[in-house]
């Protein structure tokens, strides 16, 4: 499934909710079963400090595909972390770099990525893009060599 397709799928899932409480309950459920980051990566090196809630992000690259895993100490934040991982993990750096997070606007969670929220999510997205950029650079270098 492409990034775009996953985003459409998520928009579909959220369209059945009538109010914010159902939506938040869903996020909380997702937050509970987020692909937990391996303990070795849940350190300050991988910490994105968000002031209010903290997010840990790890990325690996097998030459074609980027894999992300992440965690947060706040469960609603973690639910959104889960959505971002679901959307961006398992894709090529090119695909990650050319896509965006507008799907969050469409499911009414845009506010969580606002710079004033200080929950670490905006920095997480920036960090994911940065990883993709670095991996892309790496891949291009290998081709040139």
């Amino acid at each position: 499934m492409t990034i775009e397709q996953t985003q459409q799928q998520i928009i579909g899932e959220f369209s059945i909710f009538d109010d914010w409480m159902e939506k938040y309950n869903y996020l909380i459920e997702m937050g509970k079963d987020c692909p937990i980051i391996e303990t070795q990566y849940k350190t300050n090196n991988y910490l994105i400090n968000g002031c209010q809630s903290r997010v840990w992000l790890h990325a690996s690259f097998d030459g074609n595909i980027v894999h992300f895993s992440a965690d947060s100490d706040a469960v609603i934040t973690k639910g959104i972390v889960n959505l971002l991982i679901r959307v961006f993990s398992g894709h090529s750096p090119e695909e990650i770099l050319k896509s965006d997070t507008t799907f969050l606007d469409q499911i009414g969670l845009k506010e969580h990525l606002s710079p004033t929220r200080s929950n670490g999510l905006l920095s997480m997205v920036k960090q994911m893009k940065l990883y993709a950029q670095i991996f892309q650079l790496k891949a291009n270098q290998q081709v040139n060599e």
Binding site: Y24, I28, Q52, S53, D73, A74, V75, I76, T77, N119
Partner: peptide, 9 residues
């Protein structure tokens, strides 16, 4: 419960 979660609700 993380205070940030509760605060959002």
């Amino acid at each position: 419960i993380h205070p940030y979660d509760a605060g959002m609700i």
